[in-house]
Design a protein around this nucleic acid. Structure first.
Length: 263
DNA sequence: CCAAATGTTTTCCC
DNA sequence: CGGGAAAACATTTG
C-alpha cells in the first residue's frame, strides 16, 4: 500500500459515493467480513473518513473499514485513482477482487449499473475489509501529530526510531517509504535508539512529518519523495551529499539512508 | 530460478 | 504483562 497518503488519495476519490444507497455487496470471505454483505445493502453512505492507513465508510448504523495491506487498491466507478501501484501488479484481474459494492442508480448514482461503485482489488490478499473495525490501538494520524505527542511516544523506548515510526500505535499512517523519507529530512539515522534522540532531533522529526507528508501528498503519494522507488532499488546516491546510500533491514523492512548527513 | 516487495499479525524469548 | 526481534502470510515482479 498503500501508506496513509495513498489511503488519503483514495478517501478523496471515494467522495462521489457519499449520498448513494448501497444495492448489492459481494465479499471474498478470505479477505472481507461476510457480515458486510448482510448489513450494508439498503444503507446509505453518509461520509467517508480516514485514520492512518484505514478508510472508513460510514452508514447510519455501521462502518465499512478498508485496510490495504501491501498491494490492495481501490477502484471507484470503474476508475482507479492510482492506476499503477509500486511493488504491486499493474494488471486488473477480477479474481483479485476482495469486495464489490454496487449502488442504486438515480440522482447521484452511478452512470452504469453494471460497473461496481467500489472495488477493493488485491493480488496478495493482505488487504482487509472489515465491519465496524476497532481503531483504538491507532495513534494520532500523520496529519495531526505534534512534537509533544511524539516525545511521549518515544521516551523510554530503546527500539530503533524507524521501528517506532512504523508502529501504528505511535503514529498512524507512516509506511516504509514515508518513514525513510522523514528521517532523511530530519537528518536522523533509522537505526538510532529512539530514547537517544535529543530535543532538537525530535523537533526536527516532527517538523519533517508536518512538512514532508503534505508535500508528498501534493506530489501524488508516498513514492514521490527524495528516496523514491527508483533510488531505493539500485545503488543510489544521496541527492544532497552525493554519497552512496546505505541500506539494511530495520524493523523487518528495508531501510535506506545517507550515512553522511543522517546520524 | 531467486530475491525482494508501500504491511500486519503471530510467536517466541527476555 | 510489556518490549522487541523474527517468522508467517500470499503472490507478483524484476
Amino acid at each position: 500500500m498503500p501508506e496513509g497518503l495513498e489511503a488519503e488519495i483514495w478517501r478523496r476519490a471515494m467522495q462521489p459515493l457519499v449520498g448513494r444507497t448501497i444495492d448489492t455487496v459481494w465479499v471474498d470471505e478470505r479477505a472481507a467480513d461476510p457480515g458486510l454483505a448482510v448489513v450494508l445493502p439498503g444503507a446509505t453512505i453518509e461520509r467517508i473518513t480516514r485514520h492512518g492507513k484505514v478508510i472508513l465508510g460510514h452508514t447510519a448504523d455501521h462502518a465499512l473499514g478498508l485496510h490495504f495491506g501491501m498491494t490492495g487498491r481501490v477502484i471507484v466507478d470503474g476508475h482507479a485513482p492510482i492506476d499503477s501501484l509500486e511493488y504491486a501488479s499493474n494488471q486488473d484481474r477480477p479474481e483479485w477482487d476482495r469486495l464489490r459494492i454496487h449502488t442504486r442508480s438515480g440522482p447521484g448514482g452511478p452512470s452504469d449499473p453494471e460497473v461496481a461503485a467500489l472495488r477493493v482489488n488485491d493480488p496478495r490478499r493482505l488487504a482487509r475489509c472489515s465491519l465496524d473495525p476497532d481503531l483504538h490501538h491507532l495513534g494520532p494520524d500523520i496529519f495531526d501529530l505534534d512534537t509533544d505527542t511524539l516525545t511521549v511516544a518515544l521516551t523510554g523506548r530503546r527500539a530503533a526510531i524507524k521501528t517506532l515510526l512504523l508502529d501504528q500505535s505511535v503514529v498512524a499512517g507512516l509506511g516504509n517509504l514515508c518513514a525513510d523519507e522523514v528521517l532523511w529530512w530530519a537528518g536522523i539515522a533509522p537505526g538510532r535508539p529512539a530514547d537517544t534522540l535529543t530535543d532538537a532531533e525530535r523537533q526536527a522529526l516532527a517538523a519533517a512529518i508536518d512538512e514532508q507528508v503534505p508535500a508528498m501528498l501534493e506530489r501524488g503519494g508516498s513514492t514521490s519523495g527524495v528516496l523514491g522507488p527508483s533510488i531505493r532499488r539500485g545503488p543510489g546516491e544521496c541527492p544532497q551529499d552525493g554519497l552512496p546510500l546505505e541500506r539494511s533491514t530495520i524493523g523487518g523492512r528495508t531501510a535506506v539512508w545517507c550515512p553522511y548527513h543522517q546520524h
